[in-house]
Simulated assay, not measured.
Amino acid sequence: MSGLPYPAAPDPAARAPGPGRPADPARRDAAIAAAQALFLAQGFERTSMAAIARAAGVAKPTLYAWFGDKAQLFAAAVTRKCETVLGSFDLPSAGGTPAELLTAAARRFLDLVLDPEALNTHRLVTMERERHPELGQLFLVHAIAFTKARFTALIAALAARGLAIDDPEQTASDLLGLLRGWPVLMWELSGPTMSPAELDAHAARCVGVALAGHRPGAVATG
Rank of each mutant, 00 (worst) to 15 (best):
F139A: 14
R21H: 05
R107F: 09
A75G: 13
G57H: 08
E117H: 15
A55V: 05
F151I: 06
A50L: 15
V85S: 01
D90H: 15
P196R: 08
L154V: 00
R27T: 10
A13P: 12
A76H: 01
S190N: 11
A13L: 05
A50N: 11
I32G: 04
S195E: 06
A56I: 03
A210Y: 13
T147S: 13
E134Q: 08
D11W: 03
L38V: 04
T97H: 10
H122S: 15
A156N: 01
A33H: 11
P92D: 05
S190I: 05
S190C: 09
R131P: 04
A16V: 08
A197C: 00
A218N: 01
A157R: 01
L114M: 04
G162C: 12
P116V: 07
E188W: 02
M49G: 09
Q72M: 13
Y64V: 05
H132G: 02
G217R: 08
L135P: 00
E130Y: 15
P168M: 14
R161F: 13
A143V: 03
I32T: 06
D115K: 03
M194I: 07
R80P: 02
A26M: 09
P61N: 07
K60Y: 09
V58F: 10
V141D: 02
A104G: 13
V113N: 12
A26W: 04
E134G: 01
A13N: 09
F44V: 09
R129D: 00
A26K: 09
I155P: 10
I52A: 00
A33D: 11
G162Y: 09
T147Y: 04
L86Q: 14
V207P: 10
A153D: 03
I165G: 05
E188D: 05
A156P: 02
P216S: 05
G20F: 03
P196D: 05
L179C: 11
H132Y: 13
A94E: 15
P92G: 05
L158M: 08
T47Y: 03
D200R: 11
R27S: 10
G191N: 02
E117M: 13
S88G: 11
